[in-house]
């Protein structure tokens, strides 16, 4: 069995995030995720502090580690300098490296995040682009955003942007040379390998669930993980 604690301790964010928790619960009082989900950052810190390998494995396979919104309010408040949000980052990384993320509904969403945000970074040099925020998938963006997308070139030109054109400025086209450098950075730092790990474990899970990953960018598995909410996460069900 893998020594999960030893693996976590290799992550600099785990070293920085876990000092010694006195279980005061101040982090829970400030945490937006604790308010919304059946989630408790204090428990996360307590569990990893106890160094019980079996319990940590359960955690790595659970929905629990995927609830945090990464606002890092916990860091401000903790009187002992712990940061539950950074411990969460280390747990999420390890969960993906070991393929445990596909065992939970919230963890499986990493496939959509890799496909959408992850690939866009390498394809365009941006985390997001206007056309990624498709009005049909983002009704909350309202009719104004539909107007932006329907008149995209004219609107961004009016805003003074340099949309998809070479040179400097807002939403410029990132040069091929710069994209190549970005790709090289991902190659030598393990970013591409990490993307592949997410993809490989997700494809394996999709096969188990009889969902297709090959039928286009909005494939069956992606749509499933992007939209499924079992309604079992708030603790009020």
């Amino acid at each position: 069995m893998v020594d999960y604690c030893a693996e976590l301790e290799k992550d600099i964010r785990f070293q920085e995030g876990l000092k010694s928790c006195l279980n005061c619960g101040v982090c829970c009082a400030i945490c937006p995720a604790a308010e919304f989900y059946n989630y408790d950052p204090r428990s996360i810190v307590t569990l990893v502090q106890q160094r019980n390998n079996e319990v940590i494995e359960q955690l790595l396979k659970s929905n629990t580690i995927w609830y945090c919104g990464q606002c890092m309010s916990c860091k401000t408040r903790c009187p002992r300098g712990n940061t539950a949000g950074m411990i969460i980052q280390a747990l999420r990384t390890l969960s993906q490296q070991l393929g445990f993320f596909t065992e939970s509904e919230k963890g499986r969403q990493q496939y959509a995040l890799k496909k959408v945000v992850g690939e866009n970074i390498l394809n365009t040099g941006y985390c997001l682009c206007p056309t990624m925020v498709a009005p049909e998938l983002h009704v909350e963006q309202g009719p104004m955003w539909e107007w932006v997308i329907a008149n995209i070139d004219a609107v961004y030109e009016r805003m003074g942007a340099n949309y998809r054109k070479p040179g400097a400025g807002v939403l410029r086209k990132i040069s091929d040379d710069a994209l190549q450098e970005l790709a090289q950075i991902f190659e030598v730092t393990g970013g591409k390998e990490f993307y592949k790990t997410i993809e490989d474990f997700s494809e394996k899970k999709a096969a188990e669930m009889n969902l297709d990953t090959t039928n286009g960018p909005m494939n069956d598995y992606l749509v499933h993980v992007y939209t499924t909410n079992s309604g079992t996460h708030s603790g009020n069900e």
């Binding site: 990493q110 992850g118 985390c127 040069s175 393990g190 990490f194 993307y195």
Partner: peptide
Amino acid sequence: PNHTTCTGIGYHSDVVPF
């Protein structure tokens, strides 16, 4: 103009390693 994303959204969505 060769400045790119810092990857921040990908990083805090846990798909980009530190």
